[in-house]
Write a protein that binds this DNA or RNA. Sequence first.
DNA 1: TAATAATATTAGAATAATTCTAAATTTAAG
DNA 2: CTTAAATTTAGAATTATTCTAATATTATTA
Lengths: 120, 120
Amino acid sequence: MTRYEKKIYEIINSSYDHMTAEDVFAELKKAFPSVSLATVYNNLNKLCDTGLIRRISCGDSADRYDRTARHDHLVCRKCGKLADITFDDITQPLKSRLGEDFLYYDLKVYYICPECRKKG
Amino acid sequence: MTRYEKKIYEIINSSYDHMTAEDVFAELKKAFPSVSLATVYNNLNKLCDTGLIRRISCGDSADRYDRTARHDHLVCRKCGKLADITFDDITQPLKSRLGEDFLYYDLKVYYICPECRKKG
DNA sequence: TAATAATATTAGAATAATTCTAAATTTAAG
DNA sequence: CTTAAATTTAGAATTATTCTAATATTATTA
């Protein structure tokens, strides 16, 4: 692991935000002012490939990156905002169906967030 | 519903592929040769907003569109290919936790597909 | 009908996220 | 050290999608 890869991993894993590549770039610059955006993308891709972080694609904007510690996501269908939530772990039924090929799962639950609910 | 919206809805709902906007465009052109790509995007967005179809964002390429009939997805983490699968419906626990704000959920299960497994 | 308003479509420009390229730098290995 | 391999870099290129503003279609009402 290079210093950049390591630091990016730390940034993602110590954050409860759902950071975009630009967010990570801004954060990484604090430690390494001369780092380039391409390096951020390179390392985010590498970390996703090795399964150390995960990508959350929501369609309407830039991809976000998240720690892998088991949790699910709420997505507001009005404003698109993401929130963490943890539902019961459903690994077992998936694993028993897919066997060793199973890696992990990603559960997004769509809802109307409190703010949007208020606005009507 | 306009003729385009209606036809796009039909295309998505009668397909078991996971079509991109370009795929839909190509298909729609068979019925309406002069239609434009912007119309496809407009109507795909409208159909997603009203919940008549759903968007599947996988991060590494263009968004895909899918019928809403209850089913889940397998995603190969090597090649990214999508496949349909249906696991037990977990609506109830989600609904009992979120109440009326709950809309629907989207479950992606990551695995290594048979082809990539073969290649090693 | 005809007139008006509202909505949808269009082509192409604009934008934004991400990847690519090829050179330069850093790290690792012999 | 020297060489090879991997990483980083800046900026160009690509790609998906949205935006714009003009045109066409559809719906509404007189």
